[in-house]
Design a protein around this nucleic acid. Structure first.
Length: 667
DNA sequence: CTTAGGG
DNA sequence: CCCTAAG
């Protein structure tokens, strides 16, 4: 039905290198009934928020409205007619230049209300977990690992903007310096695959919800084109599946369909369609070590992907979601308690993305709208269109990255919560309740505090997610520490098992010999310090324990002063909350304390207001010894202050001070 | 990013 | 403990 000869590229294509952008997009749960029941009528629309200056790109997931396969076939003739008409109406450049494209357009007839640049084609898929767009300007400089960062033409997206949000790859080999649109071969291949009766049956019934009373609302399988990146099929991956039950490889499908019971298939689809938040929101304690229920379905082994950068969670302001994945069967929906069956072996967080990347594509009809017009689209498009809030990517994707890290580190049950409270209101039925129950957890105390803090004092810098006092004009800084990624999951760690990030860190620490960390973790380490001048100020405060101090001392004795990073790496590896800066500060404070103690002892006498941990004398002595061996760089301020402010404390006093405990930090 | 240093 | 400058 489709010619396989090399795709002649249009004049437009000559100018613009084309590639298929594969963006993984997850949409939050969709209001729906039990499995196999309704897909929301809104499911065939989605919007993809790219970023400024194109806040929203409407995407039609289903052009003609969702139709069943049968209906699709039946309507082909009609569609063809309308297509031809539409094509004729389309810009001459597009229609005349690329028959293949026309074909592709023709294959996926849709009402052209979705507006995208006329040369643009946006495909969507999926359970809406993947959307790929074709119309990209490939930015070659960003080529990396066979992937290319790209930008959508018409300035909707700037290369810099799509970094980490989108990756694209040439759909075809580069020829004459031009990247061609996806070959029809590929399309054919996939199409064939999709049209396989077996699959059609399974997918349509179990996944695509075909045959259900709401089949009309389902995406017609035929409306999908596969843009599969076979190169992404890692050897050890072997079998790959894509979101929305779209399989990337024949063999996978074959194996999957052979003797694989429905449950397994569901499992596949589940995995594939799981939104990131769901994906990681599982109960598997050692959730990262999971096995697939069937050998045949050993799909998820050893695959790696970088969900953080490639998978994008999306939720809609409207609260309506085109999440086919959820509509299909989410792990918590159709899943039984033994869902663990769909665990993953050696899943690396770096590799999830590929799973979500498979894409169905279709040609979005074009009306040549400009980005500027896009803002008015809500009025122009039927209300089924979903508008994705801008800046969604950062909001959603980054937490995932953190989660992954944590999950991996902790190897414990880390639940993801705080994922768009908005869903909740739209998930009325039990199924939804299950999901919500699992997904939405009570925010941590700290999170609550911080959010409230955020409201009261906007635009703060964060340390991790901890709001810091606003100081200076450097408001744009986000993460300043290496462990910020770990800390970043504070918001999403549930409170039940681990109340605070520290707890999670403590979890991480559990992998190591027991440390004092765990023992102290329950202590409130964050408290609000009232500052009469600036009001409430948050402060991280975690008292240093003696073991910690001893470790610090040991580290200093071993490395010397100044190599705080080394010390931290070696001795405080399990104490994520002790940064190298903290070590430095602590050491400085210890020096001061020892000096002060010395002075107090000799001169003024005890005016001990210190509520702090009393430091044993032998520790103090040790500190002084070390300070002699490893003089703190210019740590003379206290002394200088003392000397200047109190002439009584003269040099002579110091020199005459007692014995071998003499502080010799300066000079 | 790391360290030093002021606050 | 926070923040920033400097390298």
């Amino acid at each position: 039905m489709i010619d396989k000869k090399p795709l002649p590229h249009s004049p437009v294509a000559r100018d613009i290198e084309r590639a298929t952008v594969v963006a993984s997009v997850s949409l939050p749960s969709t209001p729906r009934g039990p499995l196999g029941k309704a897909l929301p009528s809104t499911c065939h629309h989605a919007s993809l928020c790219l970023s400024d200056p194109s806040p929203i790109i409407p995407i039609r997931l289903s052009p003609t409205g969702l139709e069943s396969v049968a209906e699709a076939k039946q309507s082909k003739a009609n569609a063809a007619q309308s297509r031809a008409k539409a094509n004729a109406e389309r810009a001459p450049s597009a229609s005349s230049s690329s028959p293949s494209r026309l074909r592709r357009f023709a294959r996926f007839p849709r009402r052209s209300s979705a507006s995208i640049a006329s040369t643009s084609r946006i495909g969507g898929t999926t359970n809406c977990t993947s959307i790929f767009m074709e119309i990209v300007e490939v930015v070659r400089d960003d080529c990396k690992d066979g992937m290319v960062k790209c930008a959508i033409e018409d300035g909707w997206v700037k290369p810099s903007m799509c970094q980490n949000n989108f990756t694209c790859k040439p759909v075809q080999d580069e020829i004459h310096g031009v990247l061609f649109p996806a070959s029809e071969d590929e399309t054919m291949e996939v199409e064939h695959l999709l049209l396989e009766p077996q699959i059609e049956k399974d997918l349509s019934n179990n996944i695509m919800l075909m045959g259900s009373e709401h089949s009309k609302e389902c995406l017609a399988i035929e409306d999908f084109t596969f843009a599969v990146d076979y190169t992404d099929c890692k050897a050890d991956f072997g079998k790959i599946y894509s979101d929305a039950a779209l399989i990337q490889k024949h063999e996978f499908v074959d194996s999957m369909l052979q003797g694989v019971n429905e449950g397994n298939l569901h499992g596949q689809s589940n995995f594939c369609s799981i939104c990131p938040e769901l994906f990681w929101d599982n109960d598997c304690a050692e959730s990262l070590e999971v096995k697939c229920a069937s050998q045949n379905t050993s799909c998820i082994r050893n695959f790696r992907s970088d969900l953080r950068t490639k998978s994008i969670g999306i939720h809609s302001d409207a609260g309506e979601f085109s999440d086919l994945s959820n509509a299909l069967n989410s792990p918590y929906d159709a899943a039984t308690p033994d869902r663990d069956a769909y665990l993953f072996d050696d899943v690396s967080t770096n590799q999830l993305p590929d799973v979500f990347r498979s894409s169905l594509g279709w040609d979005a009809s074009v009306e040549g709208k400009h980005p500027s017009q896009c803002s008015s689209m809500p009025n122009e498009i039927d209300d089924e269109t979903i508008w994705i809030p801008k800046n969604l990517f950062e909001e959603v994707s980054s937490p995932f990255g953190s989660i992954f890290d944590t999950t991996k580190l902790c190897g414990r049950d880390v639940r993801v919560g705080n994922f768009s409270e908005a869903h909740k209101t739209h998930l009325g039925d039990e199924d939804s309740a299950v999901i919500t129950n699992k997904r939405l957890r009570k925010p941590t105390r700290r999170y609550i505090e911080e959010t409230s803090d955020l409201k009261s004092r906007c635009c703060r810098e964060t340390r991790g997610l901890v709001i810091q006092k606003q100081r200076g004009l450097h408001a744009s800084r986000v993460q300043r520490r290496k462990n910020a990624a770990v800390m970043g999951n504070e918001t999403i760690i549930s409170k039940d098992e681990f109340l605070t990030v520290d707890e999670s860190r403590a979890t991480y620490a559990l992998r190591f010999p027991k440390s004092e960390l765990r023992n102290n973790a329950s202590e409130d380490w964050t408290r609000t310090v009232r500052n009469e001048k600036s009001g409430i100020r948050r402060k991280h405060h975690r008292l240093w324990t003696l073991p910690e101090v001893m470790k610090l001392i040991e580290g200093v004795s071993h490395y010397g002063v100044g190599r705080w990073t080394d010390i931290k790496r070696l001795l405080f590896a399990t104490s994520a909350f002790r940064t190298s800066v903290d070590l430095k500060d602590k050491w400085r404070n210890l020096l001061r304390a020892s000096a002060a103690q010395l002075h107090d002892r000799k001169q003024v006498g005890p005016h001990k207001k210190h509520v702090t941990l009393p430091i044993p004398q032998y520790v103090m002595r040790r500190i002084r010894e070390l300070s002699a061996i490893h003089p703190y760089p210019r740590e003379r301020k206290p002394r200088a202050l003392l000397i200047s402010s109190n002439p009584v404390f003269s040099r002579s006093n110091d020199n005459s001070s007692s014995g071998d405990d003499e502080l010799t930090e300066e000079t």
